[in-house]
């Protein structure tokens, strides 16, 4: 495993830790999109179907379990926890996330590495992950006061995607047979979705003012 990949996984993990910190410790999910969290739970469920079939490494298995457990528990907290769910900004989190699922499934049926159940589900999870951040970005635009933890959560998620691209570039030159076009193209699309957010995040950090996205 190269340094970019490890750093990418760690920022991904950090984003989850930041979000759990906000939800578990501060008992607030203000500014967090439940739609995005539900999509992530679906992404991990679809992608890690081979969890108990293909063993890659202890690291791999543990990380997969962490992402599965954390994504489902975040959804649980936001829907069921009696204090946390009251802080959910339902009125502004209106993105029709169900309409993202079907096109991603259709695309996975058309474009996959092999037409088997697991490969189609893998491609589906890749496509869905690429667009899963959209409800969250829309909610951020509608949020007047974006708190630091929410901003950091999205920033770490975006950093994870950037680092994964660097990881692919590295792997392309060091492992000649390692090419997953599906994850590369979807991953680049996913990263571009963060470009706008990154711009405003870095500007707010540089100018030492509160993060706010223009509507």
């Amino acid at each position: 495993m190269n340094a970019f990949r490890l750093a990418g996984d760690m920022t991904h993990l950090l984003s989850v830790v930041v979000l759990l910190l906000k939800i578990h410790t501060i008992k607030s999910c203000a500014g967090i999109s439940l739609k995005t969290q539900e999509l992530y739970a679906l992404v991990f469920a679809a992608r890690y179907l081979d969890l108990f079939i293909h063993f890659i490494s202890l690291y791999n298995t543990v990380m997969k379990l962490v992402f599965l457990a954390s994504s489902f528990s975040i959804v649980w907290y936001m829907r069921r926890h009696k204090i946390v769910r009251r802080t959910y900004d339902k009125d502004h989190d209106t993105f029709r996330h169900h309409f993202l699922v079907l096109p991603c499934l259709a695309l996975a049926l058309l474009i996959n590495e092999r037409f088997t159940f697991r490969e189609v589900m893998w491609a589906f999870s890749i496509y869905l992950e690429a667009v899963a951040i959209l409800p969250q970005l829309v909610l951020l635009q509608r949020t007047r006061n974006i708190d630091n933890l929410t901003g950091q959560y999205v920033f770490f998620l975006g950093a994870y995607r950037v680092l994964y691209i660097l990881n692919w570039i590295y792997r392309y030159f060091t492992e000649p047979h390692f090419v997953h076009w599906i994850s590369w193209v979807a991953g680049i699309v996913q990263t571009l979705l963060y470009a706008d957010f990154f711009y405003y995040y870095i500007m707010s950090w540089k100018n030492n003012v509160k993060l706010e996205l223009p509507a």
Binding site: R5, D9, H54, I56, N60, K64, Y164, H177
Partner: peptide, 10 residues
């Protein structure tokens, strides 16, 4: 069929 590259990423 040729084997696919390993899916070892998260």
């Amino acid at each position: 069929t040729a084997s696919l590259p390993a899916k070892d990423e998260l």
